[in-house]
Design a protein around this nucleic acid. Structure first.
Lengths: 200, 200
DNA sequence: AAACCGATTGACTGGTCAGTCAGCCAGCGA
DNA sequence: TCGCTGGCTGACTGACCAGTCAATCGGTTT
């Protein structure tokens, strides 16, 4: 019987359509009617499932970002070497892009880098990622694996900023994006940061 | 006599007002009337000096960015060590923020990181900065000062991304911003990148 | 078969601005 | 003194679009 199938279906359909349209046109220049058209659904239905256009983006961001936070915190708890932890974090972010470039484009361009609009709304969630990375670095310093004369917060921002800039480069086709490039990028960022961090 | 003083005056007044208002409210949520009010000038005068609201931002960006490009290319031509060159580039960007935080906030938030709107328009100019940095790295590799197994483009993106993320942290008060922090940040980014880059 | 109910539809409205334009005013040259 | 020019003014308009809502549809319960 599975009586409650349809509602979930259409809602998901709208979210998926929104990813495609936001990625293509950007949040500000997509009309709600664009989302409805792309989803093959009536205009009003978008408002049946979501309070506003903003809420659609919020949901897309929060769902994905919480996966990322969980992955980072999980990695940290697993107790590998600090360097391996950073490698895992970089890997997860890069793989997120590899797996669903359109969604990651929307998240980075419209939220993470849109600090004046949606970035503000989600600042606490975003900051949690910075903090988790900083914690990995700080623990690495306590354990003597990283040198202690650098502020972990600075390192965390640089590390995340470097990764995000590489993603942006792929997103806007400033730099080539093949599977090889993805793997190289991950090692590069970690190697660069760590070889600068490790005691000499 | 200096007969042509007034026109330049008001135009500058509008640009300065725009910096303040864009920094405070963001480009999208400032009305042209906000700029006019802030400048103490009639609404229509903005359109006397500028073709559109967009053109005001374009002018702010291009004027400042070309200074940055000149500074980078100048530094490169001066023939110091590759590491010193990168230090100079990082220093110039950080000093730009220290000197005029509001303008740099506007440039980064509304252009550099707004790759879907103004970033697109100015992509070529932005890319020139990446390319200049990549050239410094590539030359460093040829000279044997940097190890050669890393793509200069990747390094350039990571380097710039790290700096921009630190600026964003200051702009949105995620990390503290004192003179000491500025100096530390500059050395940190360069130290991290270079100590990872230099042959061991 | 009749009442009911949530999903679905899309025409319509209200508010918001970017950009226009008709004209004002101050100084200058004739 | 009288145009004349060009910086300057701000009320107005046309376009755009998020969000509303009254109506319809299809299935389920009584």
């Amino acid at each position: 019987m599975a009586s409650k199938a349809p509602p979930i279906d259409k809602r998901r359909q709208i979210l998926d359509a929104a990813i495609r349209v936001f990625a293509r046109q950007g949040f500000h220049s997509t009309r709600v009617s664009d989302i409805a058209d792309e989803a093959g659904v009536a205009y009003g239905l978008v408002y049946h499932y979501f309070k506003s256009k903003d809420e659609v983006l919020n949901e897309l961001f929060s769902a994905r970002w919480s996966l990322l936070l969980t992955a980072i915190e999980e990695t940290d708890r697993e107790g590998a070497s600090p360097r391996a932890k950073l490698e895992a974090v970089a890997g997860f972010i890069v793989d997120s892009y590899r797996h669903d470039p359109e969604l990651m484009k929307v998240i980075i361009v419209e939220v993470t880098r849109a600090a004046n609009s949606f970035g503000r709304t989600h600042l606490a969630e975003i900051r949690r990622a910075y903090d988790s990375i900083a914690k990995i670095v700080a623990d690495g310093q306590s354990a003597g694996a990283f040198r202690g004369d650098i502020d972990p917060t600075f390192v965390s921002m640089s590390f995340y900023g470097a990764i995000e800039q590489l993603l942006s480069g792929w997103i806007f086709e400033v730099i080539p994006a093949s599977d090889t490039d993805f793997d190289q990028a991950r090692s590069l960022v970690v190697a660069t940061i760590c070889d600068g961090l490790e005691p000499r």
